[in-house]
């Protein structure tokens, strides 16, 4: 296995995903298989001169600094799971968290 159980748990924590204990063994196997598969990329001799390129425009466009909010057809109270007195509400966080 190229990916260990501990690594899967660490990654799941970083990604904020619950992983059920009974699903863990399968997940470790699948992730290992995928990582092994994509690892063939490192078998290709590295060529430091290759500059990564991404399609799309070469340079960012500058937006004019004007207050032009795009209107919402309806407010957060319509789509938020918990919205009170104008705030999105989440379980209590300590001030020092």
């Amino acid at each position: 296995m190229s990916v260990s159980r501990e690594e899967v748990l660490r990654i799941a924590q970083l990604a904020e995903l619950d992983v059920q204990e009974q699903a863990l063994a399968d997940l470790v196997a699948q992730m290992s298989r995928i990582i092994d598969y994509v690892a063939q990329l490192s078998a290709v001799p590295a060529n430091g001169s290759v500059k990564p390129v991404v399609p799309g425009p070469d340079a960012i466009r500058f937006r004019t600094d004007e207050v032009t909010p795009s209107q919402l057809a309806f407010g957060p109270e319509e789509f938020a799971p918990d919205f009170k007195e104008g705030f999105f509400v989440v379980p209590k966080l300590g001030q020092f968290e």
């Binding site: 009170k84 007195e85 999105f88 509400v89 379980p91 209590k92």
Partner: peptide, 11 residues
């Protein structure tokens, strides 16, 4: 943090 008894409000 201090607006709601059981939750934290997000603005």
């Amino acid at each position: 943090h201090d607006r709601f008894a059981k939750g934290t409000g997000i603005d």
